[in-house]
Design a protein around this nucleic acid. Structure first.
Length: 205
DNA sequence: CGGTCGATGATT
DNA sequence: ATCATCGACCGC
């Protein structure tokens, strides 16, 4: 078919399995600037990734895989390059790209997109991102090296444009809550929010 | 700051 | 099997 976004698709390279088969902390910043595609029955939806978070596996107390294998985390323990989608607060979906070797339980949460084409509504936040891209549990475990749902390299931000902060909403995770595992394009208007001010957790200055 | 409900872990 | 708890959030 000849969608107006065919040119966008042709202009960049789909991320392959090897891209995802690396530590989440490396994949996360490399996803910034990439284009996310979802071919829906209503048409192709495209957004540019501007904010992500890395989840480093069972030892990472903020990661869902830190409490072992469950029905929900099966996909996150699965092979890289697949979607780990979950329902949060009974009303929103969040989507991760599974990373690392199978069994590592690592993934990168997609937190915000800049609209490119046919993106309905805002996507500056992981729940809104899935709403705008039409991602639901139906996409649980879906192969991201497919022609339904995928990401592609496009304009990587310069190293100086990448900022880090603690991850959002993981205050329960002890020292892991403070690690700079959120990556975003500095100053980009679609970034979800500034990190909440946080009291020092271990050694107050 | 509270809605809203599935997943989880404890308990029967 | 059921029960209580808790969110990788959003919008007010």
């Amino acid at each position: 078919m000849s969608l107006p976004s065919d040119a966008i698709q042709g202009a960049c390279t789909r991320l392959d399995r090897d891209f995802y088969d690396r530590p989440a902390i490396q994949v996360a910043p490399d996803l910034l600037g990439c284009l996310m595609f979802h071919a829906t029955p209503q048409g192709l939806r495209v957004g540019r990734v501007v904010e992500v978070e890395a989840y480093l596996g069972p030892t990472d107390l903020a990661a869902h895989t830190s409490r072992g294998r469950t029905a929900r985390t099966r996909a996150m323990f699965g092979p890289p390059g697949h979607a780990y989608v979950y329902l949060i607060y009974g009303m929103y979906h969040c989507m991760n790209a599974v990373t690392g070797p199978e069994g590592s339980g690592t993934a990168v949460l997609l937190r915000a997109l800049a609209p490119v084409t046919s993106l309905d509504g805002e996507s500056n936040g992981p729940g809104k991102l899935c709403r705008a891209m039409n991602i639901t549990l139906e996409h649980y475990g879906m192969d991201l090296c497919s022609d339904t749902l995928w990401l592609a390299r496009d304009n990587a931000p310069a190293a100086g444009q990448i900022a880090t902060s603690p991850r959002i909403g993981v205050d329960y995770a002890g020292e892991w809550a403070d690690k700079p595992l959120r990556f975003y394009i500095n100053g980009h208007p679609a970034v979800s929010r500034r990190p909440a001010a946080r009291k020092p957790r271990h050694k107050p200055a």
